[in-house]
Computed example of a mutant assay.
Amino acid sequence: MATRLPAEVADDLTRLVRRWHQLPLDQALSVSAPVRTLLERYADLVHPGIPVPELGPAALPDQLTVLAYDALAASRITAADVVGDLGELRRALP
């Protein structure tokens, strides 16, 4: 049985994804690096040695959601840490 994301993580992911989808492509591309860095960090927690595929800026929020879920489900990170990471990303967006 799948577990749900903690409410505070789900709320922050929703805010980040909503903001990400408002960005013009050139801005999304210019701020993709910090998102990719976080993706890789979460991936290393639960899938070490497996690179995260580069699917373009439109897929980054979905990839982040999946990897945050995986890391939380595996108890490799706390909800508070994810919320902090998501807040930093959101504040870095133009």
Rank of each mutant, 00 (worst) to 15 (best):
T14M: 06
D81K: 09
L89A: 06
L45Y: 12
P57V: 11
A7W: 01
L25E: 13
L38M: 10
G49P: 06
S75F: 05
H21P: 00
S32T: 04
R76Y: 03
D44N: 15
I50R: 08
L5D: 05
A28R: 13
L86K: 08
D81I: 07
R15I: 01
M1C: 02
V35Q: 03
R36Q: 15
V66F: 04
R91P: 00
T14K: 12
V9R: 06
A71E: 10
V66D: 12
R15T: 07
V17A: 02
A71P: 03
M1Q: 06
M1H: 07
Q63G: 00
P51T: 06
L72Y: 06
P53T: 00
P6K: 01
P53F: 01
L64K: 02
A68T: 12
A33H: 09
L64P: 02
A43N: 13
L13R: 05
I50K: 05
L72Q: 08
E54C: 00
L67C: 08
L64I: 04
R15Q: 12
H47R: 14
L93H: 07
I50S: 05
A71L: 08
G56L: 13
D26Q: 09
P24M: 06
L60G: 04
A7K: 08
A71S: 14
P24S: 09
E8H: 08
V9F: 06
D85Y: 01
V66Q: 14
V66L: 15
P53A: 02
D11E: 15
D44W: 04
V52S: 04
A2W: 06
Q27R: 14
D85M: 01
D11P: 00
L86Q: 10
G49Y: 12
R90K: 08
A73Q: 15
E54N: 09
D26V: 15
L64E: 02
L13W: 05
D85L: 01
A71C: 06
V9L: 09
A10S: 14
T14D: 11
L55I: 05
P6I: 02
A79W: 11
P61H: 01
P94Y: 05
T3N: 03
P61T: 03
L55P: 04
T65G: 04
L38T: 14
L55W: 05
L93Y: 07
D26C: 03
L72R: 10
L55K: 11
E88F: 02
P61F: 03
R76K: 15
G49I: 10
P53G: 02
L86Y: 14
V9M: 08
H21R: 15
R36Y: 14
E40H: 12
L60Q: 07
V17K: 00
P24C: 00
G49A: 12
A74F: 01
D12C: 08
V52F: 02
